[in-house]
């Protein structure tokens, strides 16, 4: 599945705020079509790393290439061109509260395409249906549940058929069944629609179900402590922290606990 040139290349990335360094010298690639999961404890900088990858934050040092272009230096049109090819679901959904779900999902189409209104509506409706919200198109975000809001946010993130889909904790706070359905959706997107998907997640059960590769961020050493297939890491890694993290996942899995 992985073709020669990675979709995302992160090189010597140092990120932080002011004098405070969060992570130092990160290096990793994301291959085309894979489901790539960023793991780490709370506050280790997963969301921050994601925001660097979509150019919302400027790194203290290093570069990030997304779909062949350097997002850390791109400006104006070049930057727009990169952003046009990625979709983002934020940790809190970030649906626009004054717009219906349909209008939320349609907005990227209005911004980036010249399609007739009728076509935009049809596409937005179909994307909502894809995440199981077809019948709620005319609802306001405040009228649906938190899990439904997350799914609607995913529909909005993928309405332009992005090459790379970034999801920040898509299944946090969802019940195990809904979260398993979401996993199936993510798998289908990656396998059938050939999207590259970068996920921040704590949900260990879902990581083993969907991840092709994971990286684990560690706050103490300010770097990546492990990288690879999650099952392989669990069986072979001798790093105690990695072991603890993934083993717990496994036992959680067998006890059918959700978190």
């Amino acid at each position: 599945m992985a073709s020669a040139e990675p979709v995302i290349k992160v090189r010597d990335l140092t990120m932080g705020f002011g004098d405070f360094v969060l992570m130092r010298d990160l290096n990793f690639d994301v291959q085309r079509g894979e489901i790539f999961v960023i793991l780490g404890g709370s506050g280790s900088g997963k969301s921050t790393l994601l925001k660097h990858m979509i150019g919302l934050y400027t790194p203290q040092n290093g570069h990030i290439w997304v779909a062949g272009a350097d997002i850390t230096t791109a400006e104006g049109k070049a930057r727009e061109a990169i952003l046009r090819r990625v979709g983002v679901m934020y940790q809190m959904g970030a649906l626009f509260g004054s717009m219906t779900l349909l209008e939320n999902v349609r907005l990227p189409l209005e911004v980036h395409t010249d399609l007739p209104r009728e076509a935009m509506d049809a596409i937005a409706r179909a994307r909502l249906q894809l995440v199981g919200l077809g019948e709620f198109a005319d609802f306001m975000p405040s009228e649906i549940s938190g899990g439904m809001q997350k799914r609607a946010a995913i529909a909005r993130a993928m309405v332009l058929d992005p090459e790379v889909l970034f999801l920040d904790e898509p299944s946090a706070g969802l019940d195990p069944i809904t979260s398993a359905e979401l996993d199936q959706l993510i798998l289908r997107l990656a396998r059938s629609l050939d999207m590259t998907i970068v996920i921040v997640s704590h949900e260990l059960a879902s990581i083993f179900a969907i991840a092709d590769r994971v990286i684990m961020l560690d706050k103490e050493s300010k770097g990546i402590v492990a990288e690879g297939n999650p099952a392989t890491l669990r069986d072979t890694s001798d790093h105690p922290w990695v072991q603890r993290f993934l083993q717990r996942a496994d036992s959680a899995d067998s006890e059918e606990r959700s978190t």
Partner: peptide, 9 residues
């Protein structure tokens, strides 16, 4: 994060 969502769009 709606402001961020606007920016990425």
């Amino acid at each position: 994060e709606e402001v961020n969502a606007l920016k990425t769009m």
